[in-house]
Design a protein around this nucleic acid. Structure first.
Lengths: 196, 196
DNA sequence: AAGCTTATAGAACATTTTGTTGCATAGTTG
DNA sequence: CAACTATGCAACAAAATGTTCTATAAGCTT
């Protein structure tokens, strides 16, 4: 029988990674150690070392397992402005009020040197871009979009600015700001005649 | 006499922090320890402990001392498109080819939990925004700007996207992309009649 | 130049973190 | 039931981290 299928092994792994993530979120990556996870779960240190011979493996597994942004269901009812308000409002909330806001910076730093973390976070962003794309495609089918709307760039701008404000510039992410952001995006997206 | 003015103390401090930064850049923050700096410089471990009783202090000092983005002299000759190309080209190069591209992610992560790192990186970004502002003001005085150009938002977008592409999305930062980015920014910035 | 002060080097020591191993026990599989 | 394998525990090893003391040398004061 393969180790990885033994229910005891699976159970230990899940328990440990849940605790590791909890520690990661409430303290920091560095607080995740075999000792701290052992204390949190009751799993013995030696067992944890058998699962993850080195701390970095434990930390990375914890990060990759649960550290992902909340799923944002694309809303494509229209009009575009309302859809953007919905999507970016949720993104804003994710950064302000969920673990993701605290975990993202750590992942970004890890991604700078670790391939797994890099492909994970790149994947998250690709998902987010795809969701946004479906919003713009729906707008196009409703005929709201300007024919020369630079959709790719708009999506990048829509998503990048909230991340940058929160993680790099240290500026507030609130609806006052979001309204202006969306207004600017719509200037480039909507066809001149369309109702705003 | 105050300790902090003794030339020996200053010399040791500078030597140590230079080495710490070198290690930080070539390996990672975690590689910066009293032991590694001692090995690199010949300064004794006990002396380093007197300067920085705890590793985190040493790491943070190394980071805050030299980890700053290259200064980008604002260019305001005009036309706006050329100025933006200059400024954002340099920002791109800073992210692609200088230590800053490797260090920024670490700083962002540290800023999430540390006030000093946070205010440092927020300060860097405020500087960058101010530089960009002078570019747009010059454009306005030349009469290039549309009267309703949303300058604040444009500056945020101009800067955020390169950072996001590089650090989060893992997309390439090259002139092919930059041309499109600037073209979109100019659509919103320039007055309708202005030569492009 | 003489004397006081302070930083450094070096070594010895203490503590904590990190990783390893062997064995008894108990859950899992066939 | 029999064979296998994960776990818990305890003892141990090694490395990283932090502390303290003393002799020496550099800097400052008069």
């Amino acid at each position: 029988m393969k180790t990885t299928e033994d229910p005891r092994y699976i159970a230990t792994r899940n328990l440990a990674l849940d605790a590791a993530f909890k520690i990661f979120h409430s303290e920091s990556v560095l607080a995740v150690t075999h000792a701290s996870v052992s204390a949190e779960t009751g799993i013995s240190r030696s067992t944890l070392y058998r699962h993850w011979p080195h701390v970095e493996q434990l930390r990375k597994d914890a990060m990759l397992r649960v550290a992902r942004p909340p799923v944002i269901a694309p809303r494509t009812n229209g009009p575009l402005k309302a859809d953007l308000n919905w999507m970016l409002g949720l993104l804003m909330a994710a950064l302000n009020e969920t673990p993701w806001g605290k975990i993202a910076p750590q992942m970004i730093a890890t991604a700078a040197t670790d391939e797994d973390a890099k492909s994970a976070i790149n994947g998250f962003m690709a998902d987010r871009k795809r969701d946004m794309m479906s919003v713009f495609e729906a707008a196009e089918q409703r005929g709201e979009l300007a024919p020369d709307a630079p959709v790719e760039n708009l999506i990048e701008m829509a998503i990048s600015v909230p991340y940058h404000r929160k993680l790099v510039a240290g500026l507030p992410l609130d609806y006052d700001w979001l309204d202006g952001h969306i207004e600017v995006l719509c200037r480039l997206a909507l066809r001149p005649g369309a109702a705003d």
